[in-house]
């Protein structure tokens, strides 16, 4: 409170500048959380389980993006136009890696349990086991230290908002986030694939009577959620670097965002992600930056205690 009062009393201009730069960073983080959170919520919709190995989908997107950037850029400095191209390549590669790992998880960690009608606890244990396996494998193969990604022009300020510089990195995240989340929303609301995902979420058996192949729909759901999670992993790694444990905290926060918005609710996950990103970022106005994670997970505990259905409530399988 002291710091806040200080801002209010004498340094309003400084506060405003800091507020907007925190806000910009928060929105960027929020888009990343949203892109990860939709993966949790989609899988929850069709399987009624939390894919706790989703963090490793995110991590795989980060590493895949890192390797492709390293191969393409190395130590050279690309032009602005090349930067745009490289980032698109990174998103595609990260998304592909995420989709592949998600498919692998579904096949190896979940489908065999589904065949045997295993209890929910078995899925949770399987998810945690798969998660440990994957991140330790990455740690062994790629080293247990953080590697910074070759960065094209991403720290270049593109424009200013109320005096706060908005770097290319943030612009990239905004555009990628808006495009991917909007596309996902439309796919689920209007396409045949989307209808089959919603039908399985609402009543899998009846969906199969309509001709929906449940196994294939579940596999496609993992692919869609995995692609967005992997792309988010690349975008995150671009700014922060990659390391085998990189998925843990962002994914847990995205899970918080999905719960905050209402697990199973697609738009809820997007809104929850943005809200969490902004609230967490602005909280440093009031408390030390070290408390950011406390704030984020405090929100998770509060939502679970007081409104477990989240902001938009649980509207399973609903497009909106």
């Amino acid at each position: 409170m002291g710091a806040f009062g200080h801002y209010l009393s004498g340094h309003f201009a400084t506060f405003r500048l800091e507020f907007w730069s925190l806000f910009v960073g928060g929105v960027a983080n929020g888009f990343l959380y949203g892109m990860i959170a939709v993966g949790y919520t989609l899988v929850y919709g069709v399987l009624r389980l939390i894919n706790f190995a989703h963090s490793e989908i995110f991590m795989s997107g980060g590493f895949a993006g890192y390797f492709v950037m390293k191969a393409l850029i190395g130590n050279s400095v690309p032009s602005g136009a090349a930067t745009v191209f490289l980032i698109i390549v990174g998103i595609v590669v990260g998304g592909t890696a995420g989709a592949l790992v998600a498919t692998l998880l579904e096949r190896v960690a979940y489908r065999p349990l589904r065949r045997r009608n295993a209890p929910k606890l078995a899925y949770l244990i399987s998810a945690i086991g798969a998660s440990y396996f994957l991140f330790n494998l990455a740690g062994k193969e790629f080293g247990r230290y953080s590697i910074s990604m070759p960065q094209p022009y991403i720290n270049h300020p593109v424009f200013h908002i109320f005096g706060a510089a908005v770097q290319l990195y943030y612009v990239v995240i905004f555009i990628a986030g808006v495009v991917m989340l909007f596309a996902l929303d439309r796919v689920v609301a209007t396409t045949k694939l989307g209808r089959s995902i919603r039908a399985v979420a609402q009543d899998a058996e009846t969906a199969s009577l309509m001709g929906v192949n449940i196994d294939r729909t579940i596999a496609l759901t993992f692919i869609v959620g995995g692609a967005l999670g992997g792309a988010a992993g690349f975008l995150f790694g671009l700014g922060t670097g990659v390391v085998y444990t990189m998925g843990f905290v962002p994914a847990l926060k995205a899970f918080t965002a999905a719960v905050l918005g209402g697990i199973g609710n697609l738009r809820g996950a997007m809104i929850g992600g943005l809200l969490l990103g902004v609230v967490e970022s602005l909280s440093v106005v009031f408390v030390q930056a070290a408390y950011i994670d406390v704030i984020a997970f405090g929100i998770l505990v509060a939502v679970l205690l007081f409104r477990p259905t989240g902001i938009l409530g649980e509207r399973l399988g609903r497009a909106a």
């Binding site: 209808r195 919603r198 039908a199 609402q202 009543d203 058996e205 009846t206 969906a207 199969s208 009577l209 309509m210 001709g211 929906v212 192949n213 449940i214 509207r315 399973l316 399988g317 609903r318």
Partner: peptide, 24 residues
């Protein structure tokens, strides 16, 4: 034959309790 191939084959099932997709 699997359940999801029945409708294309020409057999449709109106299940007990109607099982309308509630959020569609």
């Amino acid at each position: 034959v699997k359940a999801h191939d029945f409708s294309a084959m020409g057999i449709s099932h109106v299940p007990e309790g109607r099982r309308i997709f509630p959020q569609m």
